Simulated scan of single mutants.
Amino acid sequence: MDDGQLLRYSRHILLPQIGVEGQERLLAARALVVGAGGLGSPAAYYLASAGVGTLALADGDSVDLTNLQRQILHRVDSVGRLKAESGRDTLAGINPECRVDAITERLAGERLDEEIAHADVVLDCSDNFATRHAINRACVKFGKPLVSGAAIRFDGQIAVFDSRRHDAPCYHCLFPEAEDVEEVRCAVMGVFAPLTGIVGTVQAAEALKLLIGCGTSLAGRLLLLDGLAMEWRQIAVPRDPACRVCGGQ
């Protein structure tokens, strides 16, 4: 690190759990954030500002006026722009040292595999089960830690699925893939604006801890937030030995 970086990240470096070595790990890391919306916005903010060297920001959608209530990566003059490009420009103003690769498509198939294979940590900030399960399969396939978040109405949830650990469950263990699952969209059900900030920020915290190698991750646990009562609950999530995604790993 140069003198400017030592100053910029000095409050991290002062923490004995991080120090210079941990900050250097962040600077050398690549994080993949799938979704530049309500969850991806705060997650990307903190990953970039904390010094993650490369951030791949993937989203094929464009900014809509209704997004601005909670998707803080974007501004009024971003309406109509691709979210990944809008997010890249916002993050450049926060930390120009963070390289942001704007992926202006919905990741799937070989391209999803390619991006996850090159990432050190993956943050699922998407809003549909098909994408979540595809991300989970690829993370298990390539042995990448996955930080998953969701927020709807006043309810949020966060979990870490780390297939590098033999005892850790995957997303499919917790939410088995099924054709009859009903999608719940915030366009229909609504979402409390700060809720996405809370969940996305916790996702960033878990991702940073995984990259640095400090603390205890949420692997094997599911955090549930009732935003109306501002109450947190924790549920243990065991690995399913019969899981068709990670059971054979």
Rank of each mutant, 00 (worst) to 15 (best):
V76R: 11
V76T: 14
V76P: 02
D77C: 04
D77A: 08
S78K: 06
S78R: 08
S78Q: 05
S78H: 12
G80K: 06
G80A: 01
R81I: 04
L82N: 13
K83C: 09
K83F: 05
K83Y: 07
A84L: 00
A84Q: 02
E85C: 00
E85M: 06
S86P: 05
R88W: 15
R88A: 09
D89I: 10
D89Y: 13
L91H: 12
L91Y: 13
L91D: 12
L91K: 10
L91M: 14
L91P: 09
L91A: 09
A92R: 15
A92Y: 13
G93E: 10
I94Q: 07
I94K: 05
N95I: 11
P96F: 02
E97K: 14
R99A: 00
R99W: 00
D101N: 12
A102M: 05
A102C: 07
I103F: 08
T104H: 13
T104Y: 13
T104L: 11
T104C: 15
E105V: 03
L107R: 03
L107M: 10
A108M: 04
A108V: 07
A108L: 04
R111F: 00
R111W: 02
D113M: 06
D113T: 06
E114Q: 08
E115I: 06
E115N: 04
A117N: 14
A117E: 15
H118C: 15
H118M: 14
H118A: 15
A119N: 04
D124W: 10
D124P: 07
D124I: 04
D124Q: 05
C125R: 02
S126H: 12
S126R: 09
N128K: 01
N128S: 04
F129T: 07
A130D: 09
A130Q: 11
T131S: 14
T131G: 09
R132H: 05
H133V: 01
A134L: 02
A134N: 04
A134Q: 01
I135H: 11
I135Q: 12
N136L: 00
N136P: 00
N136I: 00
R137S: 10
A138W: 02
C139Y: 06
C139G: 07
V140L: 02
K141H: 14
F142C: 11
F142I: 13
F142Y: 15
K144V: 15
K144P: 13
P145M: 11
L146H: 08
L146I: 07
V147C: 11
V147S: 08
V147R: 10
S148P: 03
G149A: 05
A150N: 03
A150P: 04
A151M: 02
A151V: 05
I152K: 03
I152C: 03
I152P: 01
R153T: 13
D155E: 11
D155R: 03
D155G: 03
D155P: 02
I158E: 01
I158T: 02
I158H: 01
A159M: 07
V160S: 11
